[in-house]
């Protein structure tokens, strides 16, 4: 198999996830797009590991070991991320990223009055 096929698929998936992270408004959908980007990296790692283990007789299998570590860390990341999103939702009543602007400058007019009152309280 040409190495270009998995490499191109991985690049396309990564850019799809990049678009999702930048364009989505719901925090859970942003986490889904982050998962897409992580999976693109995993596909690259596996493809290059298979290529190197055949071509260079590399027996360390670092690509597949790193893929397993990435999968485990992604599972931990999604657990912590969802816990944070749920905590934000309980405190604010929204998981809309565009409305969480307490630390931003110049966006004071965008936040609704109730949120501002709660943030300053």
């Amino acid at each position: 198999m040409h190495l270009a096929y998995p490499a191109v698929l991985s690049a396309l998936l990564f850019c799809t996830g990049l678009y999702g992270v930048l364009a989505r408004r719901n925090a859970v959908l942003v986490l889904m797009s982050v998962e897409l980007m992580l999976n693109a990296v995993n596909l690259n790692l596996v493809a290059f590991d298979v290529w190197l283990s055949r071509t260079a007789r590399e027996t360390l299998h670092s690509g597949q070991a790193l893929t397993l570590f990435t999968i485990a860390i992604a599972a931990a990341e999604i657990g912590i991320g969802l816990a944070i999103v749920l905590a934000v939702y309980r405190n604010r009543g929204t998981s809309d990223i565009d409305r969480l602007r307490d630390t931003a400058e110049g966006h004071e007019d965008d936040t609704p009055a109730a949120e501002k009152a709660e943030a300053t309280a």
Binding site: H2, V8, V50
Partner: peptide
Amino acid sequence: AALTVAIAAAAALVWVVVDAFRTTWIDL
């Protein structure tokens, strides 16, 4: 803006990757 960034990144990545690994063959 996100669409522009994503398409630019996809074009650059695909071009570089195809140019680099055009003749590389995985023996399965």
